[in-house]
């Protein structure tokens, strides 16, 4: 660790970094998502043609990444709230982070089939 840095490493810093990175990614997607939804005011065809992009296998992978970012940001956000408002929050911040990561992992396994199933069928046929 370089001298004089504010960064302390370990769970506290890395969860903070991941919270920022996922937050920025989600926010940039939100701009795109409002724009694509706005196409319902242009024509049904314009909207359906654009949404078709969301159904392609490559974008399905990006959607899986989006789900990963949102679920981490949500779970870690609840941890941040607990650290701020629960008297024992700061003491258990590490345990809460690993609990959040555990729940995140289980949810990501659960999201595999619903989010990526159609892409797998399209790529490998069935």
């Amino acid at each position: 660790m370089p001298a004089g840095t504010l960064y302390r490493g370990r769970e506290g810093m890395w969860s903070w970094v991941a919270h920022r990175v996922t937050g920025v990614l989600i926010f940039f997607f939100l701009f795109v998502h409002v724009l694509d939804t706005a196409l319902v005011r242009v024509s049904p065809e314009a909207y359906d043609d654009t949404v078709a992009i969301y159904k392609t296998p490559v974008v399905a992978l990006l959607e899986y990444g989006l789900v990963a970012a949102i679920l981490f940001h949500a779970l870690n956000g609840l941890r941040v709230i607990a650290v701020d408002f629960w008297s024992k929050g700061p003491r258990y911040q590490k345990q809460m982070l690993w609990s959040a990561v555990g729940i995140w992992f289980i949810l990501m396994v659960g999201a595999l089939y619903p989010v990526l199933g159609h892409a797998v069928r399209e790529v490998f046929g069935s």
Binding site: T37, P44, Y47, V51, K55, A111, P114, V115, G117
Partner: peptide, 16 residues
């Protein structure tokens, strides 16, 4: 939008 009732495949103008 992504999990229930066929996931992303069902989304279209009619669904909205």
């Amino acid at each position: 939008q992504l999990v229930l009732d066929g996931g992303v495949s069902k989304i279209g103008f009619a669904f909205v």
